[in-house]
Design a protein around this nucleic acid. Sequence first.
RNA 1: CGGGGCGUGGCGCAGUCCGGUAGCGCGUCCGCUUUGGGAGCGGAAGGUCCCGGGUUCAAAUCCCGGCGCCCCGACCA
Length: 481
Amino acid sequence: MADSKALTTRAADFSAWYNDVIMRAELADYSPVRGCMVIRPNGYAIWEQMQSALDRMFKDTGHQNAYFPLFIPQSFLAKEAQHVEGFAPETAVVTHGGGKELEEPLVVRPTSETIIYAMYAKWIQSWRDLPVLINQWANVVRWELRTRLFLRTTEFLWQEGHTAHATEAEAEAETLLILGLYRQFMEEWMAMPVITGPKTDSERFAGALRTYSCEALMQDKKALQAGTSHNLGQNFAKAFDVQFQTREGGLEYVWSTSWGVSTRLVGALIMTHSDDKGLVCPPRLAQWQVVIVPIWKTDEDRELTYAAANNMVKELRAAGIRTTADLRDMKPGAKYYEWEARGAPFRLELGPRDLANQSVMLARRLGGKEAVPMAGLAARVHEEMATMQRALLDAAKARRDAATLRNPKSRQEFIDFLEANGGFVYAGFCGDPAVEAEIKAATKATIRCLPSEEFRSPEAPTTCIWTGRPATVEAVWARAY
RNA sequence: CGGGGCGUGGCGCAGUCCGGUAGCGCGUCCGCUUUGGGAGCGGAAGGUCCCGGGUUCAAAUCCCGGCGCCCCGACCA
């Protein structure tokens, strides 16, 4: 009985477990359209929490939201050579509208640089118009060959920031500012530690000068690119003729950036924290931080516990805690299992015994149950949430660090670690793209990023792990999603 | 596109090898009893067996041809 209701375990089949968690928590479902998913209310609620936190951060740093069209004239994509090369193979193209063949096919945006720069060319004339700091929340379509719920779907939701600046230095500062915001969001809200740094040329965004990313490690020890921030240099400005008059009277192309995170973050959240009972969601992103389950036998107790539960909802909500009471007519045990699968951080069990004691049973999603007094409950819950938020980040960091190898002594140690353990490997790299490709072919591992200073090893590697030639940089390898 | 698996009430499956008029579990609805870790009993509703063709007295089952989805690779936020 219990077995048939249990999820596939992580140890048995990580990818089946991942799908089970999503289905059981009702985060998403497959749709009638291949590769496209339906984000169900429980999943969308997490995305909304992510959106509101990120949106606040963007606005606090001077960005504004806008909205650009879903359709892009096909010729626009072709204006930037690398961009079209990177995205043309995975675009969906509209050839007919209103029953007639279109004069020029319209591409369903895979990303919006091109149409946005077409507009920036109109809007930007003078140094006084800069910087332009715009973000949009949108859906995009990329015709991926193989899809996975949240991690890679044909259509996905994201935000894409597009900024234009007067100088190269300002553009670089913006790129790094956003990278920092992403990192802050991932660590402080998602409780997901990341390493940051520039990508190698082969992993760079199509059309960018430089791409920085946030890289996280999932519980199966595979890496996931969680967010990217691109310094586009003047590439798109030149392709779309976005010029401005400088303070000195000259004519120059703007320096621009773009950056984005997507609903993939929901997948990252799941694979970072969840367990064999289902979703584990950090309190700061949980739809319901507290779920109250009343327990009763008689009609009289039912009245009393429901009334107490409703009062408790009011009290906790007034204290800024997202709280709901589960008043369905089900056995309490059934509700416990359900809310655990859905990832509610805390459950308050409220029965006649608790009412008599003026206390309530607080059950933590991470384990442990204890009676706590009703007086001061909100303050207690706030403490518990802060503790859980910290515990999740610490645990994720510990898992990542345990799955990290620095400075392997030999090529064989490098290979063995990736084969046997997985995880991140920090090692020296000669910088040769051909070597990077060879390592990928041999080990399936790619360079996730060239780690920023704070992540680098205390002693910089001096030789390339693959060739033995002098290392030009330290790189982080992993098998990735 | 290569490899694997699967298409049967809302969901999960059995039945397919060896053709004989569709079954189980969960869920749903009604009633009674239950409710501090996945409730019990009784009753009820609900199916173009993915699609098209063929063989046959007879096809979920055999044959041919399609379509779709999932998983594993190559490509990618």
